[in-house]
Simulated scan of single mutants.
Amino acid sequence: MKHQEVIEILHECMVACNYCYDACLQEDHTHHIAECIRLDRECADMCNYLESAIARNSPFIQELAAVCVKICEACGEECKQHDMDHCQQCADACFQCANACRQLV
């Protein structure tokens, strides 16, 4: 399948964001990580959508990939500010995904 590696990286990022989202909701004081939670959702949804768009050979892959880069970078920047392992792992996945999506733009 075309872009198989990017599809796998998108999927890994979606999983990392969903895990971070859920783990953040388990924290005692979620108000200081509210933006992290919000961006985890945005990023997971965008990665999932782009993964589907690539699989169906959407004519909008380049545009969607550009948006995905922006969202992944925003999520990664937010997550890296938090010390929890799930946030650090999510940040790494987001930055890797942003780099992979740049190949599609």
Rank of each mutant, 00 (worst) to 15 (best):
residue 5 E to C: 02
residue 84 M to T: 11
residue 13 C to I: 02
residue 76 G to I: 06
residue 61 I to T: 04
residue 70 K to V: 03
residue 78 E to V: 06
residue 87 C to G: 02
residue 39 L to E: 04
residue 6 V to P: 00
residue 65 A to R: 00
residue 52 S to A: 15
residue 15 V to S: 00
residue 84 M to R: 13
residue 34 A to S: 13
residue 49 Y to S: 11
residue 67 V to D: 06
residue 54 I to N: 06
residue 2 K to L: 10
residue 56 R to E: 09
residue 14 M to S: 15
residue 51 E to V: 02
residue 58 S to Q: 06
residue 80 K to N: 03
residue 36 C to F: 09
residue 41 R to H: 07
residue 33 I to D: 01
residue 49 Y to L: 15
residue 63 E to Y: 06
residue 14 M to L: 07
residue 92 D to S: 13
residue 59 P to M: 02
residue 74 A to Q: 08
residue 85 D to F: 00
residue 58 S to L: 00
residue 51 E to W: 09
residue 91 A to R: 06
residue 99 N to T: 11
residue 19 Y to M: 14
residue 77 E to L: 04
residue 73 E to T: 15
residue 46 M to Y: 10
residue 26 Q to G: 08
residue 105 V to N: 01
residue 1 M to F: 01
residue 89 Q to T: 10
residue 91 A to V: 03
residue 62 Q to D: 02
residue 43 C to G: 04
residue 21 Y to Q: 14
residue 39 L to K: 13
residue 54 I to G: 00
residue 81 Q to P: 00
residue 57 N to C: 08
residue 23 A to E: 14
residue 55 A to Q: 14
residue 9 I to W: 08
residue 41 R to P: 00
residue 81 Q to A: 11
residue 94 C to H: 08
residue 73 E to V: 13
residue 19 Y to C: 04
residue 41 R to K: 15
residue 89 Q to E: 15
residue 82 H to E: 03
residue 102 R to N: 07
residue 74 A to L: 01
residue 105 V to Y: 01
residue 9 I to K: 15
residue 41 R to G: 02
residue 75 C to Q: 10
residue 22 D to W: 11
residue 77 E to V: 04
residue 18 N to F: 10
residue 42 E to C: 09
residue 67 V to N: 05
residue 9 I to A: 09
residue 75 C to F: 05
residue 75 C to G: 04
residue 84 M to I: 01
residue 60 F to K: 07
residue 63 E to I: 01
residue 64 L to H: 10
residue 7 I to Y: 03
residue 63 E to L: 07
residue 11 H to Q: 14
residue 32 H to F: 14
residue 52 S to M: 15
residue 65 A to Q: 01
residue 48 N to P: 00
residue 70 K to F: 03
residue 96 Q to L: 10
residue 48 N to R: 14
residue 24 C to G: 14
residue 44 A to W: 09
residue 19 Y to H: 13
residue 8 E to A: 11
residue 11 H to F: 12
residue 70 K to C: 02
residue 34 A to F: 04
residue 96 Q to I: 02
residue 45 D to V: 08
residue 71 I to N: 03
residue 25 L to N: 15
residue 26 Q to F: 06
residue 46 M to T: 10
residue 5 E to Q: 12
residue 43 C to Y: 11
residue 23 A to L: 11
residue 84 M to F: 11
residue 88 Q to M: 08
residue 60 F to A: 11
residue 16 A to Q: 09
residue 20 C to S: 12
residue 29 H to D: 14
residue 16 A to I: 05
residue 30 T to H: 09
residue 36 C to S: 13
residue 82 H to N: 04
residue 61 I to M: 01
residue 54 I to C: 05
residue 61 I to H: 04
residue 40 D to C: 13
residue 12 E to V: 02
residue 89 Q to H: 15
residue 91 A to K: 05
residue 73 E to W: 02
residue 68 C to Q: 03
residue 83 D to K: 08
residue 46 M to C: 10
residue 59 P to N: 08
residue 39 L to Y: 13
residue 45 D to Q: 12
residue 95 F to V: 06
residue 72 C to I: 09
residue 97 C to S: 14
residue 22 D to E: 13
residue 74 A to K: 07
residue 29 H to A: 12
residue 34 A to D: 13
residue 57 N to L: 05
residue 67 V to R: 05
residue 83 D to M: 03
residue 57 N to W: 04
residue 38 R to P: 03
residue 59 P to A: 05
residue 71 I to C: 03
residue 42 E to M: 12
residue 69 V to S: 01
residue 54 I to L: 11
residue 87 C to L: 03
